[in-house]
Simulated assay, not measured.
Amino acid sequence: MKLDKPVTGGPCWTELGTNDLEAAKRFYTELFGWRPETDARQEAGGYTIAHLGDAAVAALAPLYQESQPVAWNVSFAVRDADATAREITEAGGTVLVGPMDVFDVGRFAVSVDPTGAAFQLWQARSFPGAGLFNAPGSLGWVELMTRAPEQARAFYPSVFGWSVNASEHYTQWGLDGADFGGMVTMDDKFPPEVPPHWLPYFAVADVDTAASTTTSAGGTALMEPTSLQGGRRIAVLRDPQGAMFGVYRSPDED
Rank of each mutant, 00 (worst) to 15 (best):
Ala40Pro: 13
Ala55Asp: 15
Thr226Asn: 09
Leu199Ser: 10
Ser158Asp: 00
Val159Gly: 00
Arg249Glu: 05
Leu228Pro: 14
Thr8Leu: 05
Ala77Trp: 03
Trp162Phe: 03
Val142Asp: 00
Thr8Asp: 07
Ala71Pro: 11
Ile88Trp: 00
Ala178Gln: 13
Glu90Leu: 11
Glu43Asn: 14
Ala58Lys: 04
Ser212Asn: 14
Ala210Ser: 05
Gly92Ser: 10
Tyr248Ile: 04
Gly46Pro: 14
Ala85Leu: 07
Leu139Trp: 01
Val159Ala: 00
Ala58Val: 09
Lys2Asp: 12
Met244Lys: 09
Val97Gln: 12
Thr8Phe: 04
Asp187Glu: 13
Tyr248Gln: 11
Phe76Trp: 08
Lys189Glu: 13
Trp173Pro: 00
Phe190Leu: 08
Thr226His: 09
Val97Met: 10
Asp239Lys: 10
Leu63Phe: 06
Thr171Ala: 03
Arg147Val: 08
Val194Met: 10
Ala135Glu: 14
Ala217Ser: 15
Glu22Gln: 15
Gly131Ala: 09
Val97Phe: 10
Ser163Pro: 04
Thr89Asn: 03
Ala83Tyr: 01
Thr115Cys: 09
Asp208Leu: 02
Glu37Asp: 14
Pro149Trp: 01
Pro251Gly: 08
Ala205Asn: 14
Gly93Lys: 03
Arg233Thr: 13
Val236Tyr: 04
Pro149Asn: 07
Ser111Asn: 09
Gly181Ala: 02
Gln120Thr: 12
Pro240Gly: 11
Ala148Met: 11
Thr146Phe: 01
Ala130Thr: 05
Asp176Met: 07
Gly116Cys: 04
Gly17Cys: 09
Asp187Tyr: 03
Thr38Asp: 06
Asn165Arg: 11
Ser167Gly: 15
Ala135His: 05
Tyr28Trp: 10
Tyr201Asp: 02
Gln120Ile: 01
Val184Ala: 11
Ser111Gly: 13
Ala24Ile: 08
Val207Gln: 08
Tyr47Asn: 05
Arg238Phe: 01
Gly33Val: 06
Tyr28Met: 05
Ala210Met: 01
